[in-house]
Design a protein around this nucleic acid. Structure first.
Lengths: 168, 168
DNA sequence: ATGTATGCAAACCATTTGCAATGAC
DNA sequence: GTCATTGCAAATGGTTTGCATACAT
C-alpha cells in the first residue's frame, strides 16, 4: 500500500488542489479525515473520467480500503466545493472528473469511451454568450458519435459481409 | 377519457411523426399497438421535457392507463427510432424530449426547471465543427445556472436579511 | 393460429440512510 | 470528552426482467 501522508502533511500541503479542499473543510467546520484526503489524492491521479466503482477499485488495488458510503460522501463534498463534476452520459452510469479547463466531451455510442478535447473556439463562444435573464454558472457539451477505432471495426465487419455475399 | 383513434387510423395517419413511428415499427417487424400510439400521442402534446412519472400521470389523468413497463418499452423504441432523446441533468432523474430542432438547455440549479432556447449561432458553430477522427451523430449542450425567478427570490431573501441585521 | 406485446410483481443495482463504533478536534 | 465521520447493513427508488395473459398479424 502506498503510504498516505498524515493529516498535518495534508493540512500544510502546498498543492493548490489539496489546499482548496482543506479550506473548504475549514470554512464549513468539517473534519479533515484520512479517508477524505486519500480519496482526493487518488482522484488527482486519475486522468479523465471515472465511476465510483472504478475509483474504489483503484483505491483497493492501492491497499486503501474506504467504505462505499464514505466515497459517495466525499465525492459529494468535492462537488459542493466545486472541485469535481458529475456527468451522466446517455445510457451510462454516473462518471466524475476534476474540474479543470472547460472542454468538450466526445462520447462513443459504440464502445462508451469518453474523450475530452480542448476547444478554445467553443470556450470563447460560451464566454461571450449571455442567456437572457439566466445567470450561467457552468456548462457541459456532450458530443455523441463513433470513435475512430469503432468506425474501423465496423468497416472491417462490413467488408467481410460483402466478401461473404460475393462468395455465395 | 379522450378517445384514442384506432390502429388503422394511426397506420394511415398523415402526421409525419406518427408516420415515422409506424414506418419504424414496420421495418422492424414490430406490432402497432394501441398503447404505443397512445404513448406517442401524449408525448406529442407535451412541450419540452418530461419524466416517465409525469408522462404516466398525464396519461392517467386522461383516463388512459398503461403499465410502467410498457411506457419504458415504448420510450426505448422511440429513442431507437431517433424520435426521442433522454437527458440526465445534474442531480435529477432522467427526462425525455422529442427530437426537434437542436437547442440549448438552460437548467436552473435552484428550482430544477429546464428551458430550451434556440441558438442559431451555436447550431452553425456545431455544424461546421469537425472533431478529428470522430464521427458526430448528435450533441447536447447543458447550461447550468440560476433562472430569473430564483434570482429574484434570492435577492428578496438577502434584502430581508439585511433589514433584519439593521434592526438589531 | 402464432408469437409479440402487455401488465403485474419480483428482481436489480446504484445510491442513500440509520446507527453503533471510531477518531478529529 | 464531544460530536462529526466512518463502515456496515438495510432501505430506497428508478429501471429492468420473468412470466402468464391478451391481442396484432
Amino acid at each position: 500500500m502506498k503510504t498516505i501522508p498524515n493529516i498535518e502533511d495534508y493540512a500544510n500541503s502546498v498543492n493548490p488542489v489539496v489546499r482548496k479542499f482543506s479550506d473548504y473543510l475549514d470554512q464549513h467546520g468539517m473534519r479533515k479525515t484520512t479517508e477524505r484526503y486519500a480519496i482526493l489524492e487518488h482522484i488527482m491521479n486519475i486522468n479523465g473520467h471515472f465511476t465510483i466503482e472504478e475509483l474504489q477499485q483503484i483505491m483497493d488495488g492501492d491497499g486503501f480500503r474506504v467504505s462505499r458510503s464514505t466515497v459517495y460522501n466525499t465525492i459529494e463534498l468535492l462537488i459542493e466545493a466545486k472541485m469535481l463534476r458529475r456527468h451522466v452520459f446517455e445510457g451510462m452510469q454516473a462518471q466524475y472528473e476534476r474540474i479543470t479547463l472547460p472542454h468538450t466531451h466526445l462520447i462513443c455510442t459504440t464502445c462508451g469511451r469518453v474523450k475530452e478535447v480542448k476547444d478554445t473556439n467553443f470556450a470563447a463562444f460560451m464566454n461571450a454568450r449571455r442567456f437572457n435573464a439566466f445567470n450561467t454558472d457552468h456548462y457541459s457539451l456532450y458530443v455523441y458519435g463513433t470513435c475512430s477505432s469503432c468506425a474501423r471495426k465496423s468497416r472491417r465487419v462490413k467488408a467481410e459481409n460483402n466478401k461473404r455475399k460475393k462468395s455465395l
